[in-house]
Design a binder for these strands. Structure first.
Lengths: 354, 354
DNA sequence: CTGAAAGCGCTTACAG
DNA sequence: CTGAAAGCGCTTACAG
């Protein structure tokens, strides 16, 4: 009957008095446990009707306080600007919603300060689970979570003190390299471009690259692996240097990550003639990148399965501390539309633990 | 001294007893109001020390319940898969954080059911403000917010019952069209591609397109405006039809939105020869799209200013119901790197209210 | 200078 | 079949 309060809407107390019953009865009815409490069907229906009429929504914060659960699911990512993280986020949201959790995704700009601050905030909100994606050093963050009893999993870059889920970096890099080397003469040069020094994902991908070259007896020299970082500009500059001073320009390029590929695109835009006949492989996927009129193969990480694997782990109560689940990616060749893509499974994606 | 509890860490009660003082004192000290309560400096320091030692973090849910504020800031977006929404999200996060609010961004897949459900959930969490971005019909959602006293603003698509912030669609479309028509003979055909029938943004952009054509006395026929929707496939199909049956193929193309541009890229990938010499303009921006070796101009919406305008409105307490703030976008010509871009302001971005 | 107490809006034994 | 009461972890008048 009464209009909603100045703030936050109707309370259960107001609802109870409007329905002419006690607070407990309302609570039982609303939470569906009224049969067990042998509440009259008529009473239940009446309460429900009044609730609807007053447009009652329980205050989740009070509910959470009392029940010691928040119904919140937390996730941090470096940013939102590529398909890999966008895909992780959307999968996360969908899995969270399926479990009636409100997904809270926050980006942290790869800044350790912000990462720490955001994780602390989310933990203080008592999120029920936490996904930590794309963080270089997840272990301090894992500790923050675990200290307050929040289960967390690392995605993309693993950590020793909880469960982690990563792409099959070695297998993926091998497949890309295999494709690059096909039909390449052994004197033709193949380059690995992008990624960081002493970083898990790059280490793995370089080792896949090297392994495949070795298997094909394709020579690789020290200067052929350019870990110039992930930024577009750094990749572009590395390419400038490479093509400027080399008497033996590369015939094939394995680009590590879509951001480095952005740098390649910039270089190509500036010097189209230099890279016209270079074979290209990229460890990541983007619909526009896939449309560039170049001989390109891209690799799409399986974000859906990665996130599903996280939630499977959340759902079960088992430990698996330090374990790493390895998810095979997919090669994307040919038609640039995601749905219509020629997909090729990565063979023998053998799980391995660091 | 004591280790954190099984769940949720130390409580203020535990902290008080460990510090040998009362709960109130602890609370005053922690919230910085201890000077006003004339608490001894020594006591304050001691409490702080113990808090640090026990790694105390106040339970935000209890705090929020008591103080009637959540410290949460809500936002909904259709998805995370393009730079426009990614930019809006990152700006939103940054503005929210500057105000000590936890940003909660949830994507809703342009599905009205999900939109409603998510807004209800966020409102039930008593978010302190709400940004509703890219929603076709924001008014029911506005009502949900307002009914519970949550201030909300619409971004991208306006609504009548609150404040809204949109890009200068008319001015932006005019600038793109002006660029397209430059040097085009009047018998050469120019096409508007993408967007929906009877949708605010498309209506505005089409009217900007028509206005500029008229101003230049460039003829436009009925079949030259193809509102085929936003999906890549729809755009691709529209292009197939256009180029198949037309005896007079288009010389210039204004593509409405980056998703429609994806469809163009697919078409181009399939029929490179057909569009080699077509001038291209796109109402949106993407770094890879900007690298395509085509004669292209892109328009970058000013996400930062759009979100800043929302927060300015949140900060002040004024009404401005039904008002629409119009934010000028920027033309992006030439160098594909975002930071190095040749930027050109859109002239006379005159605010207009629907 | 500090503490005991009420109360934010819920849930859930417990008593009848 | 239903209600009164305790308590989740905080903040803040109020009393001393």
């Amino acid at each position: 009957m009464t209009k909603a309060n100045r703030k936050g809407g109707t309370t259960i107390r107001e609802l109870a008095s409007a329905a002419g019953t006690s607070i407990s009865t309302v609570s039982f009815v609303l939470n569906g446990s009224w049969r067990q409490h042998r509440i009259k069907e008529a009473t239940a229906e009446h309460v429900l009707a009044v609730a609807r009429q007053m447009d009652y929504q329980p205050n989740q914060r009070a509910r959470g306080l009392r029940m010691q659960r928040s119904s919140l699911a937390g996730m941090i990512v470096p940013h939102h600007r590529n398909r890999f993280f966008a895909g992780l986020i959307e999968s996360f949201e969908s899995e969270a919603r399926q479990r009636s959790l409100v997904p809270i995704v926050v980006s942290t700009q790869r800044d350790h300060e912000i990462e720490t601050q955001v994780v602390e905030t989310l933990v203080a909100q008592q999120v029920e689970l936490m996904v930590i994606a794309g963080v270089r050093d997840p272990e301090p963050l894992n500790r923050l979570c675990l200290a307050r009893g929040v289960r967390c999993v690392n995605v993309d870059l693993p950590g020793a003190n909880t469960f982690s889920v990563v792409t099959d970096n070695v297998g993926g890099a091998r497949s890309l390299t295999r494709w690059l080397l096909d039909g390449l003469a052994s004197r033709e040069r193949v380059i690995f471009l992008g990624g960081r020094e002493s970083e898990y994902a790059t280490d793995q991908r370089v080792s896949g690259f090297m392994a495949e070259c070795q298997a094909r007896s394709h020579p690789v020299e020290a200067g052929d692996v350019l870990r110039c970082g992930y930024s577009p500009l750094a990749a572009k500059n590395a390419l400038e240097t490479l093509f400027a001073k080399s008497d033996r320009p590369p015939s094939a390029l394995l680009v590590n990550s879509i951001t480095a590929f952005e740098g390649f695109a910039m270089f190509w835009h500036a010097h189209p003639e230099l890279v016209r006949h270079v074979r290209l492989a990229c460890f990541d996927w983007d619909p526009f990148a896939a449309c560039l009129p170049l001989d390109t193969v891209m690799l799409r990480q399986d974000m859906e399965t990665m996130i599903a694997t996280c939630f499977e782990w959340f759902d079960r109560a088992d430990e698996r501390t330090g374990e790493v689940a390895v998810i095979p990616p997919r090669l994307m060749i040919g038609d640039p539309s995601e749905s219509l893509l020629a997909q090729e499974a990565i063979p023998n994606a053998d799980p391995h633990q660091p």
